[in-house]
Each structure stands twice: as C-alpha cells, then as structure tokens.
Simulated scan of single mutants.
Amino acid sequence: MYRYVPSEEFLFSPFIGHYRSFGIAVFQYTEKGWERKSFFSDVSTDPSFVTALAQRCTRGQLSPDHLLDVLFDSI
C-alpha cells in the first residue's frame, strides 16, 4: 500500500530568489509501518494542485515507478 503526501519546501533559484514550493513524498506500508520510499521535489507552487494530485495517486494506488510520468502529464 502506498501513500502520497504533499510536502512544503522553501527553495532558492538564482533567477527568482527564494520561493515556496510543494513536493510529493511517497510512503509504503511495510511490516515496520510507513516507510518513505522516494521524494519528488518542486512539483508546483500551487498547494491545492499538489494535494489533489497526491490524493489521486493514493486513491489509485499508483506505483511509485510511474509517478514521474504522472507528474509530466499533469503539468
């Protein structure tokens, strides 16, 4: 079972300076409990977009192997 969780980040770009963005952390349930498997940084600066995308991925139990494709298709 997978859980996709939006995660707030504070980043810096030499072109725009400091900014707030949101990534998606991927957790998998194992015999030890929830373990973080991967993290995709700087998905969007729109928290509602990232939250909705993470919820859809969790509901659909998307394999983390396909998250990058979903991210590219979403933007």
Rank of each mutant, 00 (worst) to 15 (best):
I75L: 12
T58V: 05
E9S: 03
L67T: 03
Y29C: 03
L67E: 04
V70T: 12
A25P: 05
F49S: 12
E31F: 04
H18M: 01
F27K: 10
I16T: 12
A54R: 08
V43Q: 07
P47M: 08
F15G: 05
E8V: 06
P47L: 06
F15E: 15
F49T: 14
Y4P: 07
D46L: 12
L67A: 01
G23I: 05
D42C: 01
E31R: 10
T45G: 12
V50Y: 15
Y29G: 03
L68Y: 02
L53K: 15
W34A: 02
R3P: 09
W34N: 03
I75T: 12
D46P: 10
V43G: 09
L71H: 06
L71M: 04
R59G: 14
F40G: 08
T45R: 15
L53F: 14
L71P: 07
H66F: 04
D73E: 13
H18P: 07
L53T: 08
Q55I: 13
R20E: 08
F15Q: 15
P64Y: 00
R20N: 03
D73C: 11
R36C: 02
S41M: 02
D42F: 01
H66C: 03
G60Q: 09
L53S: 13
A25E: 11
R36A: 01
Y4I: 09
E31L: 11
R36L: 00
D73L: 10
S7K: 06
I16N: 06
L53N: 15
T58R: 12
S41C: 07
T30C: 02
D42M: 02
S7T: 01
V70S: 06
C57E: 14
V26N: 09
S13R: 07
R3D: 11
G17L: 02
R59N: 13
R36P: 00
V50I: 12
K32A: 10
L67V: 04
P47V: 07
V70Y: 04
A52M: 13
K32C: 07
S21G: 10
F72E: 14
C57D: 12
S74E: 05
S63L: 02
G17P: 04
S38L: 10
L67Q: 08
F15Y: 12
S21L: 00
V70C: 12
I16K: 05
A52L: 13
S7Q: 04
A54M: 11
R3S: 05
A52I: 13
M1K: 08
S21W: 00
R3H: 13
Y4N: 07
V26E: 01
H18A: 04
G60V: 03
L11H: 08
S63K: 02
F15P: 08
F40K: 06
F39A: 03
Y19R: 02
A52E: 12
S63A: 03
F40S: 07
S48R: 14
P47N: 09
S63Q: 01
V5I: 05
L68C: 05
H66N: 09
